[in-house]
Simulated assay, not measured.
Amino acid sequence: MLALGGCAAPEPVDPAPGQIQSLLDRQARALLTRDEAAYTAGLDPTLAPAALREFDHLAEVPLGSWDYRVKDVDRADGGRATVRAELRYRVRGYDPGPVTTERLLELTERGGRWYVSADRPGDAGADVQQLWQQGEVETVRGRRSLVLGVGQPQERLRAIAAAADRAVPAVSAAWPSAWAGRVVVLVPASLDAMGGLLGAPGASYRGIAAVTTGEVQGGPDAPADRVIVNPEAYGALGAFGRQFVLTHETTHVATRASTSPATPVWLSEGFADWVAYRGTGRTAAQAAPELRRAVGAGRVPARLPDDEDFAFGGDGEALARAYEGGWLACALIAERWGEPKLTAFYSAVGAHPSREGAVEKALHEVLGTSPEEFTAAWRRFLSARLA
Protein backbone atom coordinates (compact mmCIF):
# COMPACT_ATOMS: atom_id res chain seq x y z
CA MET A 1 0.00 0.00 0.00
CA LEU A 2 2.83 2.37 0.81
CA ALA A 3 4.45 1.59 -2.50
CA LEU A 4 1.22 2.33 -4.37
CA GLY A 5 0.54 5.57 -2.49
CA GLY A 6 3.44 7.66 -3.79
CA CYS A 7 2.80 11.22 -5.05
CA ALA A 8 2.49 11.75 -8.79
CA ALA A 9 5.06 14.02 -10.42
CA PRO A 10 3.68 17.53 -11.03
CA GLU A 11 2.86 18.53 -14.57
CA PRO A 12 5.68 20.58 -16.11
CA VAL A 13 4.89 24.27 -16.41
CA ASP A 14 4.50 25.43 -20.01
CA PRO A 15 6.99 28.28 -20.51
CA ALA A 16 5.20 29.57 -23.61
CA PRO A 17 2.76 32.01 -21.91
CA GLY A 18 5.55 33.78 -20.07
CA GLN A 19 7.74 33.88 -23.17
CA ILE A 20 4.91 35.26 -25.26
CA GLN A 21 4.08 37.92 -22.67
CA SER A 22 7.73 38.96 -22.67
CA LEU A 23 7.69 39.18 -26.47
CA LEU A 24 4.59 41.37 -26.43
CA ASP A 25 6.12 43.55 -23.72
CA ARG A 26 9.15 44.08 -25.98
CA GLN A 27 6.91 44.90 -28.94
CA ALA A 28 5.01 47.46 -26.85
CA ARG A 29 8.22 49.14 -25.68
CA ALA A 30 9.57 49.26 -29.22
CA LEU A 31 6.40 50.87 -30.50
CA LEU A 32 6.34 53.47 -27.73
CA THR A 33 9.98 54.38 -28.25
CA ARG A 34 9.65 54.27 -32.05
CA ASP A 35 12.41 51.64 -32.28
CA GLU A 36 11.66 50.09 -35.65
CA ALA A 37 14.53 47.59 -35.53
CA ALA A 38 13.44 46.21 -32.16
CA TYR A 39 9.82 46.10 -33.33
CA THR A 40 10.76 44.21 -36.50
CA ALA A 41 12.78 41.70 -34.49
CA GLY A 42 9.59 40.31 -32.96
CA LEU A 43 7.71 39.92 -36.24
CA ASP A 44 7.43 36.88 -38.46
CA PRO A 45 8.32 37.84 -42.08
CA THR A 46 4.74 37.06 -43.16
CA LEU A 47 3.39 39.85 -40.93
CA ALA A 48 6.26 42.33 -41.10
CA PRO A 49 5.13 44.44 -44.11
CA ALA A 50 1.60 45.05 -42.74
CA ALA A 51 2.80 45.51 -39.16
CA LEU A 52 5.44 48.02 -40.17
CA ARG A 53 2.87 50.02 -42.13
CA GLU A 54 0.79 50.29 -38.95
CA PHE A 55 3.97 51.18 -37.03
CA ASP A 56 4.51 54.08 -39.47
CA HIS A 57 0.85 55.12 -39.38
CA LEU A 58 1.11 55.59 -35.61
CA ALA A 59 4.12 57.93 -35.80
CA GLU A 60 2.15 61.12 -35.06
CA VAL A 61 -0.13 59.68 -32.37
CA PRO A 62 1.11 60.84 -28.93
CA LEU A 63 0.89 57.51 -27.15
CA GLY A 64 1.34 57.60 -23.39
CA SER A 65 1.05 53.85 -22.91
CA TRP A 66 0.64 50.68 -24.94
CA ASP A 67 0.59 47.22 -23.45
CA TYR A 68 -0.75 43.72 -23.98
CA ARG A 69 -2.17 41.36 -21.40
CA VAL A 70 -2.09 37.72 -22.41
CA LYS A 71 -5.38 36.07 -21.45
CA ASP A 72 -5.10 32.65 -23.08
CA VAL A 73 -2.55 30.63 -25.05
CA ASP A 74 -3.61 27.71 -27.24
CA ARG A 75 -0.59 25.67 -28.34
CA ALA A 76 -0.63 23.78 -31.65
CA ASP A 77 1.74 21.41 -33.39
CA GLY A 78 4.60 22.76 -35.43
CA GLY A 79 5.66 25.50 -33.05
CA ARG A 80 2.49 27.53 -33.42
CA ALA A 81 0.20 29.20 -30.88
CA THR A 82 -2.99 31.25 -30.87
CA VAL A 83 -3.07 33.95 -28.22
CA ARG A 84 -6.00 35.95 -26.93
CA ALA A 85 -4.72 39.22 -25.58
CA GLU A 86 -6.10 42.55 -24.42
CA LEU A 87 -4.47 45.61 -25.97
CA ARG A 88 -4.62 48.70 -23.76
CA TYR A 89 -3.39 52.08 -24.95
CA ARG A 90 -3.64 55.64 -23.75
CA VAL A 91 -3.17 58.93 -25.60
CA ARG A 92 -0.80 61.08 -23.57
CA GLY A 93 -2.43 64.11 -22.00
CA TYR A 94 -5.96 63.22 -23.07
CA ASP A 95 -7.06 59.80 -21.84
CA PRO A 96 -7.91 59.47 -18.13
CA GLY A 97 -8.18 55.72 -18.68
CA PRO A 98 -6.94 53.37 -21.40
CA VAL A 99 -8.80 52.31 -24.50
CA THR A 100 -9.06 48.53 -24.51
CA THR A 101 -9.57 46.15 -27.42
CA GLU A 102 -9.36 42.37 -27.74
CA ARG A 103 -6.73 40.98 -30.13
CA LEU A 104 -6.27 37.48 -31.51
CA LEU A 105 -2.60 36.86 -32.25
CA GLU A 106 -0.95 34.00 -34.13
CA LEU A 107 2.61 33.22 -33.10
CA THR A 108 5.31 31.03 -34.57
CA GLU A 109 8.25 29.52 -32.67
CA ARG A 110 11.64 29.15 -34.32
CA GLY A 111 14.91 28.37 -32.63
CA GLY A 112 13.39 28.72 -29.18
CA ARG A 113 11.97 32.20 -29.88
CA TRP A 114 8.42 33.32 -30.58
CA TYR A 115 7.43 35.71 -33.39
CA VAL A 116 4.09 37.39 -34.10
CA SER A 117 2.75 36.11 -37.43
CA ALA A 118 -0.84 37.48 -37.41
CA ASP A 119 -2.78 40.13 -35.50
CA ARG A 120 -6.54 40.58 -35.85
CA PRO A 121 -9.53 41.60 -33.73
CA GLY A 122 -10.69 39.15 -31.08
CA ASP A 123 -14.20 37.75 -30.95
CA ALA A 124 -15.39 40.58 -28.72
CA GLY A 125 -14.26 43.13 -31.28
CA ALA A 126 -14.90 41.25 -34.50
CA ASP A 127 -14.27 43.38 -37.60
CA VAL A 128 -13.50 46.49 -35.51
CA GLN A 129 -10.61 48.42 -37.03
CA GLN A 130 -8.31 50.88 -35.36
CA LEU A 131 -7.78 54.24 -37.06
CA TRP A 132 -4.12 53.55 -37.82
CA GLN A 133 -5.10 50.39 -39.69
CA GLN A 134 -6.92 52.60 -42.21
CA GLY A 135 -3.96 54.74 -43.15
CA GLU A 136 -1.43 57.28 -41.93
CA VAL A 137 -2.80 59.20 -38.96
CA GLU A 138 -2.47 62.97 -39.06
CA THR A 139 -2.69 64.85 -35.76
CA VAL A 140 -3.99 68.30 -34.92
CA ARG A 141 -3.66 69.46 -31.32
CA GLY A 142 -6.17 71.99 -30.07
CA ARG A 143 -6.14 73.74 -26.71
CA ARG A 144 -8.59 71.20 -25.28
CA SER A 145 -8.80 68.64 -28.05
CA LEU A 146 -6.82 66.18 -30.11
CA VAL A 147 -8.06 65.41 -33.61
CA LEU A 148 -6.73 62.30 -35.35
CA GLY A 149 -7.60 61.94 -39.02
CA VAL A 150 -6.94 59.68 -41.98
CA GLY A 151 -7.31 60.88 -45.55
CA GLN A 152 -8.53 64.33 -44.47
CA PRO A 153 -7.10 67.75 -45.32
CA GLN A 154 -5.38 69.56 -42.49
CA GLU A 155 -7.77 72.49 -42.87
CA ARG A 156 -10.76 70.28 -42.01
CA LEU A 157 -8.96 68.72 -39.03
CA ARG A 158 -8.04 72.18 -37.71
CA ALA A 159 -11.65 73.36 -38.04
CA ILE A 160 -12.88 70.32 -36.11
CA ALA A 161 -10.29 70.95 -33.40
CA ALA A 162 -11.47 74.57 -33.10
CA ALA A 163 -15.10 73.45 -32.72
CA ALA A 164 -14.10 70.83 -30.14
CA ASP A 165 -12.14 73.49 -28.25
CA ARG A 166 -15.30 75.60 -28.06
CA ALA A 167 -17.38 72.59 -27.02
CA VAL A 168 -15.32 71.73 -23.95
CA PRO A 169 -15.93 74.94 -21.91
CA ALA A 170 -19.59 74.96 -22.98
CA VAL A 171 -20.00 71.46 -21.58
CA SER A 172 -18.09 72.27 -18.40
CA ALA A 173 -20.38 75.25 -17.79
CA ALA A 174 -23.43 72.99 -17.92
CA TRP A 175 -21.98 69.90 -16.21
CA PRO A 176 -20.55 70.78 -12.79
CA SER A 177 -18.98 67.39 -12.03
CA ALA A 178 -15.26 66.94 -12.58
CA TRP A 179 -14.16 65.43 -15.89
CA ALA A 180 -11.00 65.41 -17.99
CA GLY A 181 -11.87 68.65 -19.81
CA ARG A 182 -10.37 67.30 -23.04
CA VAL A 183 -11.72 65.33 -25.96
CA VAL A 184 -10.22 63.04 -28.64
CA VAL A 185 -11.90 63.15 -32.05
CA LEU A 186 -11.34 60.59 -34.82
CA VAL A 187 -12.03 61.59 -38.42
CA PRO A 188 -11.89 58.64 -40.82
CA ALA A 189 -11.72 59.04 -44.58
CA SER A 190 -15.30 58.03 -45.39
CA LEU A 191 -18.62 56.73 -44.10
CA ASP A 192 -17.49 53.16 -44.78
CA ALA A 193 -14.27 53.81 -42.85
CA MET A 194 -16.36 55.10 -39.95
CA GLY A 195 -18.28 51.82 -40.02
CA GLY A 196 -14.97 49.97 -39.89
CA LEU A 197 -14.05 51.76 -36.66
CA LEU A 198 -17.41 50.81 -35.17
CA GLY A 199 -17.56 47.23 -36.46
CA ALA A 200 -20.78 47.84 -38.38
CA PRO A 201 -21.80 48.65 -41.97
CA GLY A 202 -21.22 52.30 -42.75
CA ALA A 203 -24.79 52.57 -44.03
CA SER A 204 -25.97 52.11 -40.43
CA TYR A 205 -24.60 55.59 -39.68
CA ARG A 206 -25.69 57.39 -42.83
CA GLY A 207 -27.01 60.81 -41.82
CA ILE A 208 -25.45 60.52 -38.32
CA ALA A 209 -22.83 63.26 -38.09
CA ALA A 210 -20.86 61.75 -35.18
CA VAL A 211 -21.02 59.15 -32.43
CA THR A 212 -19.20 58.70 -29.14
CA THR A 213 -17.72 55.34 -28.22
CA GLY A 214 -17.04 54.14 -24.70
CA GLU A 215 -18.22 51.56 -22.21
CA VAL A 216 -21.30 52.63 -20.27
CA GLN A 217 -20.24 51.42 -16.87
CA GLY A 218 -19.92 54.59 -14.83
CA GLY A 219 -17.38 55.37 -12.14
CA PRO A 220 -14.06 57.22 -12.22
CA ASP A 221 -12.28 54.34 -13.98
CA ALA A 222 -14.56 54.35 -17.04
CA PRO A 223 -12.40 53.78 -20.13
CA ALA A 224 -11.48 56.55 -22.52
CA ASP A 225 -14.08 57.74 -25.02
CA ARG A 226 -13.66 58.63 -28.66
CA VAL A 227 -15.82 60.96 -30.72
CA ILE A 228 -15.96 59.53 -34.25
CA VAL A 229 -17.00 61.93 -36.99
CA ASN A 230 -18.88 60.85 -40.10
CA PRO A 231 -17.08 63.06 -42.64
CA GLU A 232 -19.97 62.94 -45.10
CA ALA A 233 -22.85 63.89 -42.78
CA TYR A 234 -20.73 66.29 -40.72
CA GLY A 235 -19.47 68.01 -43.85
CA ALA A 236 -23.03 68.63 -45.03
CA LEU A 237 -23.86 70.64 -41.90
CA GLY A 238 -23.61 74.38 -41.50
CA ALA A 239 -21.51 76.08 -38.86
CA PHE A 240 -24.24 75.86 -36.21
CA GLY A 241 -24.86 72.17 -36.89
CA ARG A 242 -21.18 71.25 -36.73
CA GLN A 243 -20.76 73.05 -33.40
CA PHE A 244 -23.96 71.50 -32.06
CA VAL A 245 -22.77 67.98 -32.95
CA LEU A 246 -19.38 68.33 -31.27
CA THR A 247 -20.88 69.92 -28.14
CA HIS A 248 -23.45 67.10 -27.95
CA GLU A 249 -20.79 64.39 -28.31
CA THR A 250 -18.44 66.13 -25.87
CA THR A 251 -21.27 66.05 -23.33
CA HIS A 252 -21.29 62.25 -23.61
CA VAL A 253 -17.55 62.25 -22.84
CA ALA A 254 -18.01 64.52 -19.82
CA THR A 255 -20.94 62.58 -18.37
CA ARG A 256 -19.55 59.09 -18.99
CA ALA A 257 -18.62 58.46 -15.36
CA SER A 258 -22.20 59.28 -14.33
CA THR A 259 -23.82 57.29 -17.13
CA SER A 260 -24.59 53.65 -16.50
CA PRO A 261 -26.88 50.86 -17.71
CA ALA A 262 -29.51 52.44 -15.44
CA THR A 263 -29.57 55.58 -17.62
CA PRO A 264 -32.33 55.54 -20.26
CA VAL A 265 -31.34 56.78 -23.70
CA TRP A 266 -33.89 59.59 -23.60
CA LEU A 267 -32.00 61.05 -20.65
CA SER A 268 -28.46 60.61 -21.97
CA GLU A 269 -29.30 61.89 -25.46
CA GLY A 270 -31.76 64.49 -24.24
CA PHE A 271 -29.24 65.91 -21.78
CA ALA A 272 -26.53 66.07 -24.47
CA ASP A 273 -28.94 67.96 -26.74
CA TRP A 274 -29.91 70.25 -23.87
CA VAL A 275 -26.26 71.16 -23.28
CA ALA A 276 -25.68 71.69 -27.00
CA TYR A 277 -28.71 74.00 -27.33
CA ARG A 278 -28.03 75.80 -24.04
CA GLY A 279 -27.33 79.48 -24.63
CA THR A 280 -27.94 79.32 -28.39
CA GLY A 281 -31.35 81.03 -28.32
CA ARG A 282 -32.98 78.25 -30.35
CA THR A 283 -36.67 77.86 -29.57
CA ALA A 284 -38.44 74.54 -29.18
CA ALA A 285 -40.27 75.13 -32.46
CA GLN A 286 -36.96 75.66 -34.25
CA ALA A 287 -35.15 72.74 -32.62
CA ALA A 288 -37.95 70.16 -32.68
CA PRO A 289 -39.52 70.35 -36.15
CA GLU A 290 -40.62 66.69 -36.35
CA LEU A 291 -42.24 66.71 -32.94
CA ARG A 292 -43.81 70.08 -33.73
CA ARG A 293 -45.49 68.59 -36.79
CA ALA A 294 -46.79 65.66 -34.75
CA VAL A 295 -48.12 67.88 -31.97
CA GLY A 296 -49.66 70.25 -34.48
CA ALA A 297 -51.51 67.29 -35.98
CA GLY A 298 -52.83 66.31 -32.57
CA ARG A 299 -50.38 63.43 -32.07
CA VAL A 300 -48.85 64.34 -28.71
CA PRO A 301 -46.68 61.37 -27.58
CA ALA A 302 -48.25 59.37 -24.78
CA ARG A 303 -44.92 58.42 -23.21
CA LEU A 304 -41.27 59.35 -23.07
CA PRO A 305 -39.16 57.70 -25.81
CA ASP A 306 -38.04 54.10 -25.28
CA ASP A 307 -34.44 53.06 -25.90
CA GLU A 308 -35.55 51.28 -29.09
CA ASP A 309 -36.80 54.58 -30.50
CA PHE A 310 -33.19 55.75 -30.79
CA ALA A 311 -32.01 52.89 -33.05
CA PHE A 312 -30.07 53.96 -36.14
CA GLY A 313 -31.07 52.81 -39.59
CA GLY A 314 -34.83 52.99 -39.09
CA ASP A 315 -37.44 55.70 -39.57
CA GLY A 316 -35.52 58.99 -39.64
CA GLU A 317 -38.50 61.08 -38.60
CA ALA A 318 -39.26 58.80 -35.65
CA LEU A 319 -35.61 58.98 -34.60
CA ALA A 320 -35.74 62.77 -34.73
CA ARG A 321 -38.90 62.82 -32.60
CA ALA A 322 -37.18 60.61 -30.01
CA TYR A 323 -34.21 62.99 -29.73
CA GLU A 324 -36.47 66.02 -29.62
CA GLY A 325 -38.66 64.42 -26.95
CA GLY A 326 -35.67 63.62 -24.77
CA TRP A 327 -34.30 67.14 -25.15
CA LEU A 328 -37.63 68.70 -24.19
CA ALA A 329 -37.89 66.45 -21.13
CA CYS A 330 -34.53 67.79 -19.95
CA ALA A 331 -35.53 71.34 -20.88
CA LEU A 332 -38.68 70.93 -18.76
CA ILE A 333 -36.62 69.87 -15.74
CA ALA A 334 -34.17 72.75 -16.18
CA GLU A 335 -36.98 75.29 -16.52
CA ARG A 336 -39.29 74.07 -13.76
CA TRP A 337 -36.84 72.70 -11.17
CA GLY A 338 -33.61 74.46 -12.22
CA GLU A 339 -30.37 73.43 -13.92
CA PRO A 340 -28.73 72.10 -10.73
CA LYS A 341 -31.69 69.77 -10.26
CA LEU A 342 -31.31 68.52 -13.83
CA THR A 343 -27.68 67.55 -13.35
CA ALA A 344 -28.48 66.07 -9.93
CA PHE A 345 -31.29 64.04 -11.53
CA TYR A 346 -28.93 62.76 -14.23
CA SER A 347 -26.35 61.68 -11.65
CA ALA A 348 -28.96 60.07 -9.40
CA VAL A 349 -30.35 57.95 -12.24
CA GLY A 350 -26.87 56.79 -13.29
CA ALA A 351 -25.95 55.91 -9.70
CA HIS A 352 -28.85 53.46 -9.35
CA PRO A 353 -27.76 49.79 -9.34
CA SER A 354 -30.16 48.78 -12.14
CA ARG A 355 -32.46 50.21 -14.80
CA GLU A 356 -35.55 49.10 -12.93
CA GLY A 357 -36.69 51.85 -10.60
CA ALA A 358 -33.83 54.23 -11.44
CA VAL A 359 -35.89 57.00 -13.02
CA GLU A 360 -38.77 56.54 -10.59
CA LYS A 361 -36.48 56.87 -7.56
CA ALA A 362 -34.68 59.92 -8.93
CA LEU A 363 -37.95 61.62 -9.88
CA HIS A 364 -39.20 61.15 -6.32
CA GLU A 365 -36.00 62.00 -4.43
CA VAL A 366 -34.59 64.77 -6.63
CA LEU A 367 -37.66 66.36 -8.22
CA GLY A 368 -40.38 65.39 -5.76
CA THR A 369 -42.65 63.97 -8.45
CA SER A 370 -43.75 60.64 -9.91
CA PRO A 371 -43.40 59.09 -13.39
CA GLU A 372 -47.09 59.68 -14.07
CA GLU A 373 -46.97 63.30 -12.97
CA PHE A 374 -43.74 63.95 -14.88
CA THR A 375 -45.07 62.39 -18.09
CA ALA A 376 -48.23 64.48 -17.85
CA ALA A 377 -46.17 67.64 -17.28
CA TRP A 378 -43.93 66.76 -20.24
CA ARG A 379 -46.95 66.28 -22.53
CA ARG A 380 -48.33 69.66 -21.47
CA PHE A 381 -44.89 71.20 -22.05
CA LEU A 382 -44.81 69.80 -25.59
CA SER A 383 -48.27 71.13 -26.34
CA ALA A 384 -47.46 74.57 -24.96
CA ARG A 385 -44.14 74.94 -26.78
CA LEU A 386 -44.89 73.18 -30.06
CA ALA A 387 -48.60 73.66 -30.83
Rank of each mutant, 00 (worst) to 15 (best):
P261N: 04
G270L: 04
Y39S: 01
Q129I: 04
G357W: 09
G241Y: 12
V13I: 14
L319Y: 09
K361W: 09
V61F: 14
V73D: 08
R355Y: 06
P98E: 15
L23Q: 10
H57R: 10
R385H: 07
E360R: 08
Q130H: 04
D95E: 11
C7E: 11
A387F: 08
D67K: 12
Y68D: 11
G79K: 07
A162M: 01
Q129D: 11
A180T: 15
L23I: 10
V171P: 05
S172T: 12
L47N: 12
L23W: 10
F310E: 04
A124Q: 06
Y39K: 01
T369P: 08
Y323M: 00
R379K: 14
L328W: 01
G219I: 09
A50H: 15
V300A: 09
V229T: 00
W266G: 07
E138W: 03
P10R: 01
V137Y: 11
P17C: 03
S347N: 06
E308R: 15
A173F: 05
Y39I: 08
G199C: 05
D192K: 10
R90T: 15
E372P: 08
E317D: 14
P17K: 01
Y39G: 01
G42W: 07
R92L: 08
S22P: 12
G313E: 04
R80Q: 12
A167N: 03
Y115C: 00
D72S: 12
G125N: 13
E102I: 05
R29K: 11
R69I: 03
D306I: 14
D67Q: 13
V229S: 00
Y205E: 03
D95I: 09
D309E: 15
S370D: 14
